[in-house]
Amino acid sequence: MDEINSSKQVSVRDFTTNAVQVLDPGQDVMQWTFGGLSRDSGHFRDADLAKILRNVTAAPASAFKACRTPEVLRIIEILSIEQGQKWGVCTLNEFCKFICLKPYATFWDWNEDEEIAAAAKALYHDIDNLELHVGLQAEQAKTLWPGTGLCLGFTISRAILSDAVALTRGDHFLTVDYTHMQLLSILS
């Protein structure tokens, strides 16, 4: 892939062909290297890994909203959309109904940006056809103001919150063993 200078020029075929070559299943994974790192006794040095993690998290890639996926992840986005189609994943409106949200009536309800809404309408024709991955990724983001942190779209925010609540409610230790009554009996 050295001859390909821009991720915009990488096709799905180029990516998968090269990924298969790089990730040869017959190769011992303990011999894999990346980022110019070398192994000591079969392991990467913690300091080298920490440096990579510090460098990549120092500058966030982007925000949740339309046209904000970094160029380098373009192929990953394409593959995600294709995988969703192969698996028969629900549409955005079907997902909204599933998590008890009001489905979108128009593309402009989903994203107020004229260019984004018009492009989605040209591709999907009907808001009920809008794919889940695209719908969540390009949904109108919440307004950024001081202290807001992540400005996700409403649907993905609700899904993440619902998942967090379900995990908390389903946690045996938080819901059975460490209830307020149990903690009061321990303290007394």
Results as ranks from 00 to 15, higher is better:
residue 97 K to Y: 04
residue 61 A to V: 14
residue 110 W to I: 04
residue 86 K to P: 03
residue 119 A to G: 03
residue 114 E to D: 03
residue 147 G to D: 09
residue 145 W to G: 11
residue 146 P to F: 14
residue 140 Q to H: 11
residue 85 Q to I: 15
residue 127 I to H: 12
residue 81 I to V: 15
residue 106 T to W: 01
residue 138 A to R: 08
residue 100 C to E: 15
residue 99 I to K: 05
residue 144 L to W: 08
residue 131 E to H: 06
residue 100 C to I: 11
residue 116 I to M: 05
residue 73 L to C: 08
residue 144 L to T: 03
residue 129 N to C: 08
residue 111 N to S: 03
residue 137 Q to V: 11
residue 73 L to I: 01
residue 121 K to I: 05
residue 62 S to H: 07
residue 87 W to Y: 07
residue 121 K to S: 11
residue 61 A to P: 01
residue 74 R to D: 00
residue 79 L to P: 01
residue 148 T to Q: 15
residue 82 E to P: 02
residue 93 N to K: 13
residue 124 Y to I: 10
residue 118 A to N: 09
residue 60 P to N: 12
residue 134 V to T: 14
residue 74 R to S: 00
residue 70 P to K: 02
residue 139 E to S: 08
residue 129 N to R: 14
residue 86 K to Q: 13
residue 111 N to V: 03
residue 72 V to R: 00
residue 90 C to N: 10
residue 114 E to N: 03
residue 62 S to R: 06
residue 150 L to R: 15
residue 71 E to L: 11
residue 122 A to H: 10
residue 141 A to F: 08
residue 132 L to T: 05
residue 127 I to N: 08
residue 137 Q to H: 13
residue 126 D to R: 15
residue 136 L to H: 08
residue 79 L to F: 00
residue 58 A to Q: 09
residue 131 E to C: 05
residue 141 A to C: 13
residue 69 T to F: 05
residue 92 L to A: 12
residue 70 P to F: 00
residue 110 W to L: 09
residue 56 V to W: 07
residue 151 C to S: 15
residue 64 F to P: 09
residue 95 F to H: 08
residue 125 H to W: 12
residue 80 S to R: 01
residue 112 E to F: 04
residue 101 L to M: 15
residue 70 P to L: 02
residue 62 S to C: 13
residue 79 L to Y: 01
residue 118 A to C: 11
residue 113 D to M: 02
residue 131 E to R: 06
residue 126 D to E: 04
residue 86 K to T: 15
residue 101 L to R: 07
residue 60 P to F: 07
residue 93 N to L: 11
residue 100 C to F: 10
residue 100 C to Y: 12
residue 66 A to N: 03
residue 91 T to R: 05
residue 151 C to K: 09
residue 59 A to C: 11
residue 127 I to S: 06
residue 88 G to L: 07
residue 114 E to V: 02
residue 61 A to Y: 08
residue 151 C to Y: 09
residue 57 T to F: 10
residue 67 C to Y: 12
residue 88 G to S: 09
residue 76 I to T: 02
residue 95 F to N: 08
residue 66 A to C: 06
residue 70 P to T: 01
residue 74 R to G: 00
residue 116 I to W: 02
residue 111 N to R: 02
residue 139 E to H: 05
residue 56 V to M: 11
residue 95 F to C: 13
residue 119 A to P: 01
residue 65 K to N: 15
residue 120 A to I: 10
residue 86 K to R: 10
residue 73 L to F: 02
residue 81 I to N: 00
residue 115 E to S: 06
residue 117 A to N: 05
residue 108 W to E: 06
residue 62 S to W: 04
residue 132 L to I: 06
residue 83 Q to Y: 04
residue 118 A to G: 06
residue 103 P to K: 13
residue 83 Q to V: 01
residue 56 V to F: 08
residue 102 K to G: 03
residue 113 D to F: 02
residue 64 F to N: 12
residue 79 L to I: 00
residue 67 C to Q: 12
residue 71 E to V: 13
residue 108 W to S: 14
residue 94 E to R: 13
residue 149 G to I: 09
residue 81 I to L: 08
residue 69 T to I: 13
residue 146 P to T: 11
residue 150 L to W: 10
residue 101 L to T: 09
residue 86 K to M: 07
residue 97 K to W: 04
residue 80 S to L: 03
residue 148 T to L: 12
